[in-house]
Design a protein around this nucleic acid. Sequence first.
DNA 1: AATGTGAATGCACACGTGTGCATCAAGGAG
DNA 2: CTCCTTGATGCACACGTGTGCATTCACATT
Lengths: 343, 343
Amino acid sequence: MPVTIKDIARKAGVSHATVSRALNGSPLISQETTLAIRKLAEEMGYLPSAAARGLKTSRSHVLGVIVSRIGNPYFGEIVQGIEDALKGTAYSIFVASSHLDAAVEENIVRAFGEHRVDGVIVATASFSRSQVHLLRRYGIPIVAINSSSPQDYRFCIAHDDVYGARQVARHLIALGHRRIAYIGNMRAAQINHDRIVGFKQEMESAGIALDANLMINLQWSEIENGVEGMTTLMRRKDRPTAVFCFNDLIAIGALQVAQRMGIRVPQEISITGFDNITYSAYTLPALTTFDQPKRLIGAEAAGMLLDLINRRGSGGDDERAAPAARLLRGKLLVRESTARCMS
Amino acid sequence: MPVTIKDIARKAGVSHATVSRALNGSPLISQETTLAIRKLAEEMGYLPSAAARGLKTSRSHVLGVIVSRIGNPYFGEIVQGIEDALKGTAYSIFVASSHLDAAVEENIVRAFGEHRVDGVIVATASFSRSQVHLLRRYGIPIVAINSSSPQDYRFCIAHDDVYGARQVARHLIALGHRRIAYIGNMRAAQINHDRIVGFKQEMESAGIALDANLMINLQWSEIENGVEGMTTLMRRKDRPTAVFCFNDLIAIGALQVAQRMGIRVPQEISITGFDNITYSAYTLPALTTFDQPKRLIGAEAAGMLLDLINRRGSGGDDERAAPAARLLRGKLLVRESTARCMS
DNA sequence: AATGTGAATGCACACGTGTGCATCAAGGAG
DNA sequence: CTCCTTGATGCACACGTGTGCATTCACATT
């Protein structure tokens, strides 16, 4: 059995209330007893019980984080950013992978609810609306990251995908490409949509007609999906001269397919990624991509959530609080997988 | 304020004790009241408070997991395996990254302690001994994964690195290589040591003398370290014909350096990785590596930890319980980055 | 009718912590 | 000397849940 404040109280010859106050730095307690008690607590190896404290204060000091798949480096960096922002605060995080599976999502939300997490960061490509409502019903504030359905959330941190996609598309067009394919992930509804919008905007303003045959949308965005998408694309008679991939993982898959088929990148075909995960700098050729400020996004989301939690604590009303959304921009990263169109 | 069993009790016209029993399926309560109460709880959106329950039962139903860096795909898969094993149980996990930083480790252990996690899985390349003792002092059972200092732990799941390294080395030797370099990570003490041992064993039994100049040990094992190690290696006049890398990340870095220098892989130099992370299948050439059963390792660790927790619950004495260690073996994966030695 | 039996439920306390209120001692003002 | 203020501490309850024990009721047994 762990040491409790009662044990300390007994040993110090005071009441447990005094110990509680001393440890929390209450001004009601004289400095000398405070010091004596703290020293004793240290010696006895006392650790406050988060459960008991949470029960009393109805603050768990835990945030829930939902990602599509931990192990995906993109989410890894987001979580990293969240940890950065939480450093120095009393908060810990529950990280859970939804695998875009409704049943799993349900379990996660239940677990978050039972543990009375103080807030949730939803950073998954898609998340069922009913679970959002459930969380709201529990009174748990939510901040969404790059939400696929922003209308479901009142607080949001997002990357400006339209802007990013435009930069990438403009880059390809400036290189003389006109037959540009797009390999996307339809499960990431809003994000995919925004990137397509940015892509189309640039194509239109350059006066290039879109070829529906070159627009591919897959069910996921892992490397293997890039392989799949690129393969069907390369089977077409009239191949594109450039491929705009939804993210770096797809691009890595696409890159491999091209090289296996003996198509030189970037001489014969240009390939772009998106997100700038670490590995994209180490492919050969190194991937041209759009550098999304992932850590910053995670940190901002955590910051916003903490604000929300504290505001609520001070009597503010969630329902009436103004919705907030931050849109962050990244930067085009031209590396080696893109070159002037030669055909 | 969330719904409590008292709210349910009031509405159902029974005592809160009856509600508690009904929800927990106690045989003391008649079937009809049980059903009625459960229905009511469902309607009212009741969620048990993990804090209150934990306070009473002194079981948090939370496991702590410490990894070096979440975002490293190797640990991502380990965590995946842990999640697999926990599916269907009432357990959730706290995942924390130590970044191999002692101060961070201390915070993590404190957080785990305050939350009274039922057990901890240590899956980081190195973890300070004092923190292990602290956890033990708190009475929290620990299972280590691939521990760098197995003597510190009584329960361990490990990959047979000596065996694995031997397979890799044997493969390279069979291809005719004699000047084989090793790029390692000295921070991963035991693991690195075992892989070196396996490597040496095969070299010796093949009658090949080791060249100390070809043994490089770095401070970390990320891609950039592979770049660093390979660069210094290639500056030597008398280059190796094969490079045995500590893990896939280092190998990916090494691969890139070779190719940037115009050294063809595997024609001029063979490179091997270790672990078989997803990306290793998509480099060009695809990496020859040793497939470590990462998910299985994670799952086995979780299973062992649950056993430990339950045994303790049933009055067994931790101190006298026999230490247990499982050694799992993987399989050599020959892909394209290795070939017959041509010099 | 008195007693025993078993099933179903309520009472009351405990877990570890925080906090409003009462209590107590010391000392200054009247 | 009494009253009041100030500072320091204890008492007792609360948070939401689980559980040993007592209680109640119905029914069967003597």
